[in-house]
Amino acid sequence: MTTITLSHPIKIQQQTIITQEPAWVRWMLIGLALTFLALFLFVPLISVFYEALKKGVDVYFAAITEPDALAAIQLTLTAAAIAVPLNLVFGVAAAWAIAKFEFHGKNILITLIDLPFSVSPVVAGLIYVLVFGLQGWLGPWLIEHDLKIIFAVPGIVLATIFVTVPFIARELIPLMQAQGTEEEEAAVVLGASGWQTLWRITLPNIKWGLLYGIILCNARAMGEFGAVSVVSGHIRGNTNTLPLHVEILYNEYSYAASFAVASLLALLALITLAIKTFVESKVTPQKGKLSHEH
């Protein structure tokens, strides 16, 4: 290990000497980047909290504790609580299959996993309406059995699951591919069963990558707007998630309340970023180690 820590600074030094630019170029580029960041990221973020607290702390807390807001928070948490674990199981299973086995139709599976990224969320929502809606394929059958999916909680959960499918699988596939199958083979030769191999070898090796995927998946599940908006029906206190609630309040000109609820989502984003940064610091040395070993 010592040789590595020694050789790194030397390398970096050489690179900076070779790629050194005049001071004014460097400052101009840095200045440009900072201005851009300030205009498009920091100002909006600060304005969210500024607008939310403009009419005082009392109004702020009233806005986020009124029944409709609480219902929206509850629904958002429910949808995430169902979508994330399901995508966790699916993501691990899919990544395991894709990274460790050769089979026909592998490329189709990879494409399917990416589908939610390439399809507009609104279209995804519409697909669910077409399938489960009143005039949809399964509509009559659902009414007969007194099941409500569109404009109800199940629809929101389904839409959330759909848009968050790629996050965990996409994070794990390259990691598992890089790790290869030798450790699993070694475990099986030593007498381990399939479950023992999964729990003792595969999962511990991907734990940080997995956590990273879960965080991103959760952030998207709670923040999803388009797909959920189509299937929700915007019934206050019933099928409104946090992002939808923000929109309704804004359209009703209750800006302070709207920004107060929005600040919750902004806060969630900040917490996610913080956790993500921490997890990334754990993931990166793991990857570094890997490339060093081979």
Partner: peptide, 24 residues
């Protein structure tokens, strides 16, 4: 079986690596 690239379990200590076959 001894693999060309060792295939040691990276998340375990050396002791646990050797003990693995006995523990499973």
């Amino acid at each position: 079986f001894v693999f060309q690239h060792y295939a040691l379990f990276r998340n375990m200590t050396i002791f646990e690596n050797v003990a693995f076959g006995l523990r499973v």
